[in-house]
């Protein structure tokens, strides 16, 4: 390292000082504004008995912002939030599928991708039957299957 004069040291020092101050400001601002919330809606939503879930069509669960669907005796809970850009995806009875009003993404009743700009099938929530009632765990979103593949 070349010899450092007092002048060059001081001139570097104040620049570094301001740099550190700016960095501290950025970090503080970021920490301040970052929301400290768990993913999803952070709640277990109690719904209905498994027998009450229809075998055709879907059952909407407003509290969980999702749908319950019975496929081959299995109950699935889908998030109604479109995997494309977050619009609510309604179920269209006439066509027997989910159709997003925002950009025209379409999904089968089983939540698989049909067409449109969505990157994957509908997202899912874990369910569990407790005391004969289905509980939807909305704390964690399970990403839907890629286009072309089906949910297992």
């Amino acid at each position: 390292m070349s010899e450092m004069t007092r002048r060059s040291f001081l001139s570097t020092a104040w620049k570094v000082g301001f740099g550190l101050l700016a960095a501290a400001g950025v970090v503080t601002t970021f920490d301040l504004l970052k929301p400290h919330l768990a993913a999803g809606f952070d709640a277990i939503v109690r719904t209905v008995a498994p027998d009450a879930v229809p075998t055709t069509g879907v059952l909407e669960v407003r509290d969980a912002r999702g749908y319950l669907v019975k496929v081959d005796d299995d109950v699935l809970a889908f998030s109604e939030v479109c995997t494309h850009l977050g619009c609510r995806v309604p179920y269209v009875d006439e066509n027997g599928r989910f159709e997003c009003p925002c950009h025209g993404s379409k999904f089968t009743r089983e939540g698989d991708y049909i067409e449109g700009p969505a990157p994957r099938g509908m997202d899912e929530y874990a369910t569990e039957v407790v005391d004969g009632v289905i509980e939807i765990d909305t704390t964690e979103v399970i990403a839907g299957p890629a286009p072309g593949s089906e949910r297992t």
Binding site: R88, P101, H103, G116, P117
Partner: peptide, 30 residues
């Protein structure tokens, strides 16, 4: 939050982007 209007329109100055979003992957269009 439980009803999305149909059709859902962005402000007009983002209408071109929304049109692109319906055609391409969001990473490209958005």
């Amino acid at each position: 939050p439980t009803i999305t209007p149909n059709p859902e329109k962005a402000p007009w100055y983002f209408a071109a982007l929304q049109e692109l979003l319906a055609l391409f992957h969001p990473l490209v269009a958005g």
